[in-house]
């Protein structure tokens, strides 16, 4: 007689908890979906107005707010002279992040190897803690250091040195100018993504390579051979996954890049030292200008930029997570 309400209550509590938690779980899906859907809908007039020229054009011009009349494309109007080409920013984003990976990948692998095989066990916790602290430094602090220490150094030392001695290498000669630019942005990004990669690579090496390392050593390899021929190939997927996650980070990094990139507009960098601009940096630095566009097209075009960045990073992350899933849950860190 008492058993019945007891049972109902039991099922009820369980069902409630289940319903409540599945709603919470749905939130993260909803957030991703809502963001993408909202931005696409909001950007739709810009997508129509800009057409494919958005991806191929190099001129970003919100138009003349003091001019008269307006320009229209596909039924959507913007201020006279308006033209939104994002190629300079897309190029800048891929270029800074791509260059970052070129330097960061070997750097992170070498650092991770040193951490695993060359640091005295007593010092390991300290070294590991330092690497992890590095990934906690706020983006603006990296930017601050970049502005005050790195940029003047590039302008006063690195640039003149490169011009004098390395000018024959394409993309290197030609003077440093202000020091803000591709090299500064890349340097900062390398610093920012390295700890993320080191932590992952260190962990995948530690979690699955002990036996491989010993087996290789038993076959008469040197330690280095054991690492390069045995260990590293076995954790290829983990390295690739961490690389892609770091790449995703670099693509979306905003403040630190904004503070040292030089804010290039309408032009591609001709060498390492010249200003660049990334999608994320442009969204921050151009929003206030966009707000002056009474047609609203500039703001919508920034939303279109956000969609492009969203799609790029989303695909990189999806690929990265898929690669990492294939290996081991432990490799799954961010």
């Amino acid at each position: 007689m008492i058993a019945k309400p007891w049972r109902i209550q039991r099922v009820g509590a369980q069902a409630v908890l289940r319903t409540v938690t599945i709603t919470m779980a749905a939130v993260s899906f909803a957030v991703i979906f809502l963001m993408l859907a909202f931005l696409v809908i909001y950007a739709y007039p810009a997508i129509r107005f800009n057409g494919l020229g958005f991806l191929t054009g190099t001129i970003w011009n919100i138009g003349n707010q003091y001019g008269s009349g307006s320009v229209s494309h596909n039924g959507y109007a913007a201020m006279p002279g308006a033209q939104f080409g994002a190629l300079v920013f897309i190029y800048g984003t891929l270029m800074t992040s791509g260059l970052t990976m070129v330097f960061a990948v070997p750097f992170a692998i070498l650092v991770a190897l040193a951490l695993v095989y060359r640091v005295h066990p007593a010092l390991k916790p300290l070294a590991n803690a330092l690497v992890e602290l590095m990934s906690g430094i706020p983006s603006v602090v990296y930017g601050l250091w970049g502005m005050i220490v790195l940029v003047p150094w590039i302008s006063n030392s690195v640039g003149p040195f490169a011009e004098a001695h390395l000018g024959f290498i394409p993309f290197v000669g030609g003077g440093a100018g202000s020091g803000d630019g591709l090299l500064a942005a890349t340097f900062i990004l390398v610093l920012m993504v390295t700890p993320i990669m080191v932590a992952t690579i260190r962990d995948v090496i530690q979690s699955q390579s002990e036996t491989i390392f010993e087996a290789s050593m038993a076959l008469g390899s040197t330690t280095w051979q054991a690492v390069t021929r045995g260990v590293l190939p076995s954790v290829r997927a983990g390295i690739l996954g961490s690389l892609l996650i770091a790449f995703g980070r670099a693509l979306g990094e905003t403040m630190a890049v904004l503070m040292v990139c030089g804010g290039a507009i309408n032009i591609f960098p001709h060498n390492l030292f010249q200003p660049v601009n990334t999608i994320a940096a442009v969204i921050v630095s151009q929003l206030e200008s966009a707000l002056t566009d009474s047609s609203g097209m500039a703001q919508r075009s920034l939303a279109e930029l956000a969609v492009v960045l969203f799609v790029i990073t989303l695909s990189v992350n999806v690929v990265a997570r898929t690669v990492l899933r294939g290996t081991d849950r432990d490799g799954n860190r961010a």
Binding site: T58, G81, Q83, D180, N266, I267, Q274, N277
Partner: peptide, 10 residues
């Protein structure tokens, strides 16, 4: 829309 000048800094 500033003309593209390779040295220009924002």
């Amino acid at each position: 829309s500033w003309p593209g000048v390779s040295n220009a800094v924002g």
